[in-house]
Amino acid sequence: MTLKPFDAALSESKLYPLTATGITVFQVNIGKLCNQACKHCHVEAGPGRKETMPKQIMQACLEALEKTDIPTVDITGGAPEMNPDFKWFVKEFRNRNRHVMVRSNLTILVEPDYKNLAEFFAENRVEVVASLPYYSEQTADRQRGAGVFKKSLEALKRLNGIGYGREDSGLVLNLVYNPAGAFLPPSQKSLEADFKRELLKRHGIIFNNLYTITNMPVGRFLNYLNASENYDGYMEKLISSYNPNAASQAMCRYTLSVAWDGSLYDCDFNQMLGMKVNHGAPSNIKEFDLNKLCNRRIATGIHCYGCTAGAGSSCGGAVA
């Protein structure tokens, strides 16, 4: 099957070459270690992974960020909380008055060694972006592993208990949905209404926003697509659903993604594919150059259709 190159779609919509419009999100992937091994994970994270960002790279991230006004830091993994310097790193960003988001798998919050994490998040006014693929146990566990849904509910109740998700608390709890299979996500707005209604009715849980994220043909999800013979159909769907409006607002245009070893990427997906920032911009945090990075050309590939299909997809959910 011949797939139309992503750059051809960009050209047709007069977006080629895709370039950054600045950097407002400094995303740091601090390691691939995770207490879960989800079937769709593009990072292929899991308990056996050894890649963990060392403190000297974290220090380089802080030094780079200090030279900028980038307002938001987005910490991800793996389970970022499992990095031994995680709390120090969060505090250092907060000391520099940056808004900090942490992408949490939720279950780590109820693991015996990490039980004070919810309180730590609240004390540091961390925005929690938590994965919960569905409001029913069967669907959630099919994607994330047996027992994950129950633990996730326990973590959500703990977060709600200290104020997360309450409109007046200032403690933001956003949930992330991604399809449990080879299909596009539903409308973010209508699914958010379903999640709010069902989680409150069934479990008394509240949250602020739901982000719908498309599964990228990268990592374990790509393996699944190939093994289940869904690759051609899924790619056909992504390509035929190309939305220029979503492409023009793609997250890579305002995000810089730092890997555990300090390498720089346009997004977390390029990071997993080993496609470093190129076209003349520096590709390591130690050579951070704001001007060059803010105006860089984005490295693209066939997987980019995942962010531009339908309503689009980003780490902050639908974009169009």
Binding site: F183, P185, P186
Partner: peptide, 12 residues
């Protein structure tokens, strides 16, 4: 089947 899933319906 795909459309229903993409519109947010579940298997039940």
């Amino acid at each position: 089947t795909q459309t229903c899933l993409e519109k947010g319906s579940n298997e039940e």
